[in-house]
Design a protein around this nucleic acid. Structure first.
Length: 116
DNA sequence: CGGCTGACGACCT
DNA sequence: GAGGTCGCCAGCC
């Protein structure tokens, strides 16, 4: 049976300004909590935008006040390339979030739930 | 204007 | 378990 992307639900377009909306959402994740690319995408209208959540964060200026380090991959894994991944882990530890290997400890408990 | 290319995730073979 | 397909934004050349 051929793969049918539409079996996962109707296409949903969320309109322009995706990056700005991603950044607005990420800004609401409090210290001590983490979220995932997929969760942010879900809050924007669909998991299919998870990839663009990553793009939006990658586009941040290096001096951005946005807490980009609180966004991790599905399952609580750190998915950044090695050098940046270490910086992310250090930032999380500064938040009081323990990182074991490449994974957030107690991920499910730390997971932030977006309102709405 | 057009092609390229990035911090993803779910499901398929 | 590894690897491919698909969704589809924004900035840069």
């Amino acid at each position: 049976m051929p793969y049918d992307p539409n079996r996962h639900g109707p296409r949903r377009l969320i309109g322009p300004g995706l990056h700005a909306r991603v950044q607005a959402l990420v800004a609401t994740v409090p210290p001590g909590a983490v979220t995932t690319y997929g969760d942010v995408a879900q809050a924007l209208g669909g998991r299919q935008f998870a990839r663009h959540v990553g793009f939006a964060l990658a586009a941040l200026p290096s001096l951005s006040p946005l807490p980009w380090w609180r966004v991790v991959a599905a399952g609580g894994w750190l998915s950044l390339p090695a050098p940046a991944r270490r910086r992310q882990a250090r930032r999380l530890e500064a938040d009081g979030v323990a990182v074991l290997g490449d994974r957030v400890r107690d991920f499910e408990r730390r997971r932030h739930v977006f309102a709405g």
